[in-house]
Simulated scan of single mutants.
Amino acid sequence: MNYSFNFNAVSFEPLLKGLIVTLELTLAANAIGLTFGFLVALLIMSRIAAIRLPAMLSVEFFRCTPAIVQIVWFFYCVPMLFDVYLDSMTMGILALGLNLTAFNAEAYRAAIQAVPREQLDAGIALGLNPFQRVLYIVLPTAFRASIPVLLTNGIGIFQQSALVAIVAIQDLMYQGKSLATETYRPIETFTVVALIYFAVSFPVTQIVGYLERRRQLLMS
């Protein structure tokens, strides 16, 4: 192979700007996913079919279709069908946030089902109404139990945020593609981009592993 590597051609300034956009997308999507994921999980567990079925269908839609299709659909179909025009960053956050909501809803649902019945009975004995039982008993218990899965889903959406580059959001992947085109150094550029994604993702995966081990020790 006669290819001569030259990593000095890779400018870090545009990549860091793209990383900031990627982190903004990730944090906003996680805020949506953490909040609405729990609410959707409650809807899925409703005894009323008219409430439960639409929630289940929405979750299955986002879980069973590619994220890239969802992003493109939001960017091109929502304005045409609903006459709603939002900036590209907002649309990207909504697409990623709703995708994450579906996966977090399943994590919350499993955790809610694992809440000990004794805790709910204690809430009833204390005179807590259903809303208070959800707020003070179910939510804290389910959230703690699902933290490893929520963190895994969160880092997954950080990686999937690279897909918004196809709709011209200037995230890390978009900046990498632009830089590779300008410098004619795609190998070096995308190697650096991959290392940046790894540098952000790896510590979180280690935290997830630690929390899983700690949870298993507490349960044993």
Rank of each mutant, 00 (worst) to 15 (best):
A102S: 11
V149G: 03
F131N: 13
L39A: 11
S146W: 06
E188T: 06
A50P: 00
P79D: 02
Q216W: 00
E24D: 07
P14Q: 09
M173Y: 08
G176Y: 09
V78I: 14
L100H: 08
I93L: 12
M80E: 14
F38T: 02
V69G: 02
I124D: 01
V69R: 07
A142G: 02
R109N: 08
L100V: 07
V115H: 11
D121N: 11
L23Q: 12
F190M: 14
G156I: 01
T65H: 00
L195E: 01
F62N: 10
I124Q: 06
A199H: 01
P130D: 04
Y174A: 09
D121S: 08
E60N: 14
T101C: 12
S178V: 13
I157W: 03
I147G: 14
D121P: 00
L27K: 10
V164W: 03
R117P: 02
M1D: 03
Y108T: 06
A122P: 02
G154P: 02
M91L: 04
P130F: 02
F75Q: 10
S11Q: 14
T101S: 09
Q160K: 10
L172G: 01
M91H: 00
G37Y: 02
R117T: 15
T141Q: 12
Q70F: 05
P148A: 04
V21Q: 05
L151C: 02
V138T: 15
V204C: 03
